[in-house]
Simulated assay, not measured.
Amino acid sequence: MQYFSADDVAARLPHADCIEVMKTAMMKLSSGETEQMLRQILPLGAGNMFGIMAGTLGEQEAFGSKLISVSPERKDKSRPSHQGVVVLFDKETLAPYCLADAGQITAIRTACASAMATDLLARRESSILTILGTGEQAHHHALAISKIRWLDEIRIWGRTPDKARALANAIQSETRIPTTAEERVENAARDADIICTVTGAFDPILTADMVAPGTHLNIVGSSFDGPREIDDALVSGARFFADSKPSVAAQGSEYRHALASGVIREDHMLGEIGEVALGTLAGRTSDADITIYKSLGHIVQDIAAAAHIQAKSKG
């Protein structure tokens, strides 16, 4: 069995490659080629969780599972918030053959899935990116989305201004794109073309009145039913797309809250981003549309990423 550490994953899964890997994976999901279980989440107390996901990329392709712990409120911030493994099994022998660091895969593939959705849904001239959040995902989202749009400006907001400034400096150093830290969400969001929410917020931090017509949003921070990063009015006013319809229907907190509140119906979830990629579902229909991609993360993304890493190791 081959093992790929976090450093191995980073070296073999550059953002530009991963964006294409995610597009292919989500098209396979939406075309019905894959099989998967709904994510199982075991609460561990103190905000910690243990997640279990399993699935296959298709009948003749790799299958496997991800086992991962999540500790958003950990005291030791030197440790990653996501720790675990992705394991792949051979389709013929049924033996495990690849074990890869799940934390690094999750960090890269989540941002690259957002970049893939942004490429499909955001206006072509989009040039201002706002990121709400200052953690690992915020960093990766800036790097990934800069691969699919020519950005003139990046704005960072976080609950801790010092962290926002530090991240802005790091992103500007890496991308050479002017990047600033904003102290208020509404200032960060004003006239932004693309907004990514990658926070640990439990209650909405972004509301409909802060978002301009034509904006594309990637809603990423909440991965289970409970925390919400955006309000019902923003959900109801947007063209709403899921990574996986069954997953978002079961665990997409923003969608479920708006549905329970009566401001939307079930058909407000237009479909999956893979359908947009396949050309079977319309994405943006006008420059004035607000579009939302709700990301929960999906096992086919992890399997596809690990399979890509393993294949690259062969040269």
Rank of each mutant, 00 (worst) to 15 (best):
M1Q: 08
A6P: 12
D7A: 14
D8I: 02
R12V: 00
K23M: 08
M26R: 06
L29Q: 01
E33D: 13
Q40T: 15
I41H: 13
L42Y: 07
M49Y: 15
T56R: 11
E61Y: 11
E61G: 09
L67D: 10
V70E: 07
K75S: 11
R79C: 10
Q83Y: 05
G84P: 07
F89Q: 08
F89W: 14
F89M: 09
D90G: 04
P96L: 02
L99E: 11
A100M: 07
A107W: 05
I108Q: 04
S114M: 02
L121C: 07
A122S: 13
R123E: 03
R123D: 01
S127Q: 14
I128G: 06
L132F: 09
T134L: 05
T134E: 09
L143S: 07
I145L: 13
I148R: 15
I154P: 08
I154H: 05
I154A: 01
R159N: 12
T160S: 11
A164R: 01
A168P: 12
I171D: 05
S173H: 14
S173D: 15
V185E: 00
A192Q: 08
T197V: 02
T199N: 08
T199W: 11
F202G: 10
F202H: 13
L206Y: 05
A208M: 10
D209I: 01
V211S: 01
P213I: 00
G214Q: 07
T215Q: 04
V220C: 08
G221V: 04
S223D: 10
F224E: 02
P227A: 12
I230G: 02
S236D: 05
G237H: 10
A238C: 03
F240H: 07
A242K: 06
D243Q: 14
D243L: 07
P246D: 10
Q251K: 15
S253A: 12
Y255I: 03
A258N: 09
L259T: 12
M269Q: 10
E272P: 03
I273V: 14
G279Q: 01
T285A: 13
D287H: 13
D289I: 02
I292L: 07
K294G: 02
I299N: 12
V300G: 05
A305D: 08
A305R: 09
